[in-house]
Design a binder for these strands. Structure first.
Length: 266
DNA sequence: CAAATTTGACCCTA
DNA sequence: TAGGGTCAAATTTG
């Protein structure tokens, strides 16, 4: 299902590019090429959906897998058009909360923990339009601290931690990886919640490059717009919020470009 | 020159 | 023990 959604979102991206081509009055050849790509993608997605439906009708699974919540492609387009909305997620694959809260992250002698260091949330986002290498801007400043080749994956996984980790011991981390089946889609896994914004509320006027909430909670807004009742921040993670804005994440793009540029997209 | 990124080595968990 | 996550020195960038 994830793969099909990826294809659909990819198609939506292409439609948007076609829209720009129209306004730029591109040549008929390039328009035709775009249309061909779009129709191929959607036909492919439709065929796959048909296969999926056949399978579903054939048998009922014991444990239904976590249901992805589709927030609609329009939402993605709005992200591209409206910078303030760039943050929102496209597909939420599910939310898993471990029994250790954010406060537990520092309780063990060795800080090197994994898999149990707070909330884990995985989202699928489309790469920014026009530049497949651009990572999703989630309005936080992240620092890359590692990259690894993952077994069975075409693309490496990049590891980021919150830029405020030093200043505020913010435990938030995220992993970004391109999907094998669709390099235009990125799987972003968030681990632990941001504690930094909690600190910056009181120091809002005295610091720079710290998360500041300039607008409404975009997540909630998208939920409202698309009646997405599942897309709710985990209640046990009161500080989990991707929506506060941070001025200037330009370097992030640079690192992303350098990260992916050596990978064959064909 | 400071800050950010890269990358090989190390560590931890399943 | 393999594979994934993190560290930290080296390198790059602004």
């Amino acid at each position: 299902m994830e793969e099909i959604l990826s294809i659909i979102f990819n198609g939506i991206n292409l439609v948007k590019e076609l829209e720009f081509s129209l306004s730029a009055q591109d040549s008929p050849e390039s328009l035709s090429s775009s249309l061909g790509s779009i129709s191929t993608l959607f036909r492919d997605a439709n065929e796959r959906l048909g296969i999926l439906l056949e399978r579903k009708n054939a048998f009922v699974p014991h444990q239904p897998e976590p249901k992805p919540v589709v927030v609609s492609g329009l939402d993605q387009m709005m992200m591209q058009i409206e910078p303030g909305l760039k943050q929102d997620h496209i597909v939420r694959e599910g939310v898993k909360i471990s029994d250790s809260g954010p406060g537990c992250a520092f309780s063990t002698p060795r800080p090197r923990r994994r898999k149990k260091d707070g909330a884990v949330e995985t989202v699928l986002v489309a790469a920014a339009m026009g530049n497949v290498d651009t990572p999703p801007d989630d309005n936080y400043v992240w620092r890359k601290y590692g990259q690894k080749e993952i077994l069975g994956s075409r693309f490496p996984r990049a590891y980021y931690r919150c830029n405020n980790q030093k200043a505020y011991k913010c435990p938030a981390k995220k992993q970004v990886q391109r999907l094998d089946e669709d390099p235009y889609m990125l799987r972003v896994t968030y681990r632990s919640s941001h504690m930094c914004q909690f600190f910056t509320i009181s120091t809002i006027s005295s610091t720079t490059a710290t998360p500041v909430n300039y607008g409404p909670n975009v997540h909630s807004m998208a939920d409202l717009m698309f009646e997405n009742t599942d897309s709710v921040v985990p209640s046990s993670e009161p500080y989990f919020n991707h929506d506060s804005l941070v001025p200037g994440a330009a370097r992030y793009e640079d690192s992303w470009n350098s990260t992916w540029q050596n990978y064959d997209m064909s």
